[in-house]
C-alpha cells in the first residue's frame, strides 16, 4: 500500500485567525478515514484545502493528492435545470459517458429515474445521485463533508450500507467528515480527531465483521470517542450516545 494523500505541516487561517495549525496526515490507497472534531474545528477547511476550493484562505504547508478527486457536499448540489442523468455525467468525457452514468445510477438504486428533475427526488435520492456523480468518475480519493448530515436517521443507515457496497466496487480512498461518532465507527478504517488545528488523535477502528465481538469493540470505541469530546452536546453528538456511553 502507498499513500494517496500525504499532508505535511498544513496551515490555514482566515483573517489572521489560525484554523489549521500544522496538519500531518497520510491516507493510504483505498483507506477510509473519518474526520471528527467539534463544530468550527476546521474539518471543512481541511477538506476544502484538499479539494482546492479554499481560494480565500491563507496558509502554508505541503500536501499531495491524486488527480482524480470527487467531492460530495452536505447538500446534493445538483443543477436544478438538468435531469438526473445529465447531472451525473456533467463534465464526464468519453463516448460511453451516458452509459457509465446509467450504470452509476443503477448502482445507487436509481435506475429508471434518469430523466427526472432533481426537485422531483427526495433528499436521500438526491444525495444518492450526488454519490453516483462522484463515483462515476472512478476517483482515487473521495472527499465527503457530512454527506448524510441532512438525512433522517433511517435513510442514513441505508446510505451507510450503500456506501460500504460502493466502496468495495470502486475502492477509492475516502476522507469523510462527520459529526456522528457511530457513523465514523461503522464506516471507517481509521478515525482522526481534529482539535486546535492539529490531528489530536488517530485511532484504528479494527471492527470485527460481526457478532458479539463487533458489538463490544463498537461500544468500546464509542465510549472512547465520546469521552474525548467530553460529550458536549454542541459537538453535535446526540443524546442517544451520551446515555449509552454512561450507562
Amino acid at each position: 500500500m502507498s499513500a494517496v494523500v500525504s499532508i505535511r505541516g498544513l496551515t490555514r487561517r482566515f483573517t489572521l485567525k489560525g484554523i489549521l495549525n500544522g496538519i500531518d496526515l497520510d491516507i493510504q490507497e483505498g483507506e477510509f478515514v473519518a474526520l471528527l472534531g467539534r463544530s468550527g474545528s476546521g474539518k471543512s477547511t481541511l477538506l476544502r484545502a484538499l479539494a482546492d476550493l479554499d481560494h480565500e484562505a491563507e496558509g502554508e504547508g505541503e500536501y499531495s493528492v491524486p488527480d482524480r478527486i470527487s467531492v460530495v457536499f452536505q447538500d446534493a448540489r445538483l443543477l436544478p435545470w438538468k435531469p438526473v442523468l445529465d447531472n451525473v455525467v456533467l463534465g464526464l468525457r468519453g463516448p460511453d459517458a451516458r452509459e457509465r452514468g446509467r450504470r452509476a445510477l443503477a448502482e445507487v438504486e436509481l435506475a429508471g429515474r434518469e430523466e427526472a428533475w432533481p426537485h422531483e427526488l427526495s433528499g436521500g435520492e438526491q444525495q444518492r445521485v450526488a454519490l453516483a456523480r462522484s463515483l462515476v468518475r472512478e476517483p482515487q480519493l473521495l472527499l465527503a463533508d457530512e454527506p448524510f448530515g441532512a438525512l433522517d436517521a433511517l435513510t442514513r443507515i441505508r446510505m451507510h450500507a450503500l456506501l460500504r457496497r460502493l466502496r468495495v466496487s470502486h475502492d477509492p480512498a475516502v476522507l469523510l467528515v462527520t459529526h456522528d461518532v457511530a457513523e465514523a465507527i461503522e464506516l471507517a478504517d481509521r478515525i482522526v480527531i481534529l482539535e486546535d488545528g492539529r490531528i489530536h488523535r488517530d485511532i484504528t477502528v479494527n471492527l470485527p465483521a460481526e457478532g458479539e465481538a463487533r458489538r463490544e469493540r463498537f461500544a468500546e470505541l464509542e465510549e472512547e470517542l465520546l469521552a474525548l469530546f467530553g460529550v458536549r452536546s454542541d459537538t453535535g453528538v446526540g443524546h442517544g450516545e451520551r446515555e449509552r456511553a454512561q450507562g
Partner: peptide, 8 residues
C-alpha cells in the same frame, strides 16, 4: 449498536 444514529 447505532440507535445512536437516531439522535432525534
Amino acid at each position: 449498536n447505532a440507535g445512536s444514529a437516531l439522535t432525534a
